[in-house]
Design a protein around this nucleic acid. Structure first.
Lengths: 183, 183
DNA sequence: ACCGTAGGAGAACGCTCGTTCTCACGTCAA
DNA sequence: TTGACGTGAGAACGAGCGTTCTCCTACGGT
């Protein structure tokens, strides 16, 4: 197995375990067991657990925002695109392994202790907010709408995570629709 | 020192440490050091750490909702009361030791592993949502407003926690004002 | 065939931490 | 005074886990 595939398999295992069970409760040995990558190799690829955590969050960030953008950009109408964000959230919340927002959860777990993790969470949220801002601008709507839309989305993520229901996405979408209607 | 005061001091220390640094990174010995309550006594009062965690969350829940209600009920006008929730959030976010919502953080840390903690988080959020519902009903507004207001508040809490800024409260309040204006 | 190197399995090390135990002290009832 | 008891300080125990080390195997180049 070459380094690139070992790295991918390690990250696959890390993502499913860290996201599903939390970061602190998953040991490097669990990653080894789930990935088939030996401890020696793991430590060659990621000199410490924290770097594996960072790589996990980074790869997930790229994929998460990519999936969202791909979904949203299927819509041609600029205002529909904004609402499509909430449709996508609803799909995501309904996935079998959904356990809330990985960054919000990681922040709760490590935000107070790891400045690097906290920084990645802030960067991810900033990027998501800027993406929303670009959709708002693309629809010719006032930038002041971005904040409320972002808060609705964050509220939906955290609530869906805690309750395990996809319903907050629909509530947030309807609220967003009202806000868009006000102008 | 009698049992009641020992218990209070233990909970005071637990609250400031758990909330400030996260639950898993605070040891029972840290609680002992900060509270002056010996380990023996701590284990008499709380037979295991998890029960101290539960007692911390429970006492904080009562106090948090009490402080909110006390603030909100200073307003006579029923619609003002709804907006006062967001004013109170802004005050809370501005406190020096503010580190986000204790329940959201705890859920990120332990929600996947401790069903009891997860249950307390759900109960707290349900109670907060029901309080909002009572304010909405008191203002004679449609119950469908409760969900959006709740999501705005949750989004503000999580965003304020991550960014360390009180601004999300103002954004949420303005969005709430728009939603109330729509009817 | 031989050697050097990389890699795997898993033991070992060191630290943290939840929990319990030891021991010495002070208190209070008889 | 004495002895049973509760308590505090802190050592001790045992488990978990991040990280490193040992030892053995396999393979690639000469």
């Amino acid at each position: 197995m070459d380094s690139a595939t070992a790295r991918e398999q390690a990250l696959d295992a890390a993502e499913s375990l860290f996201y599903g069970r939390g970061i602190q409760s998953v040991g490097m040995d669990d990653i080894r067991g789930a990935s088939g990558v030996s401890l020696k190799r793991l430590y060659q690829l990621f000199p410490a657990k924290e770097q594996l955590v960072e790589a996990y969050l980074e790869r997930r960030d790229v994929r998460w925002r990519g999936r969202l953008a791909e979904y949203v950009e299927r819509q041609a109408d600029p205002e529909r695109r904004i609402l499509a964000v909430f449709d996508w959230l609803e799909e995501w919340f309904g996935e079998a392994d959904f356990r809330g927002c990985a960054w919000i959860n990681s922040y709760g777990e490590l935000g107070a202790r790891s400045e690097r993790v906290a920084g990645q969470v802030r960067a991810h949220k900033r990027a998501f907010r800027e993406y929303l801002a670009s959709l708002v601008a693309g629809a010719g709507l006032p930038d002041a709408l971005t904040g409320p839309l972002f808060l609705l989305a964050e509220g939906a993520m955290v609530t869906a995570g805690i309750t395990g229901s996809a319903r907050p996405a629909a509530e947030a979408r309807e609220a967003a629709r009202s806000l868009l209607a006000v102008r």
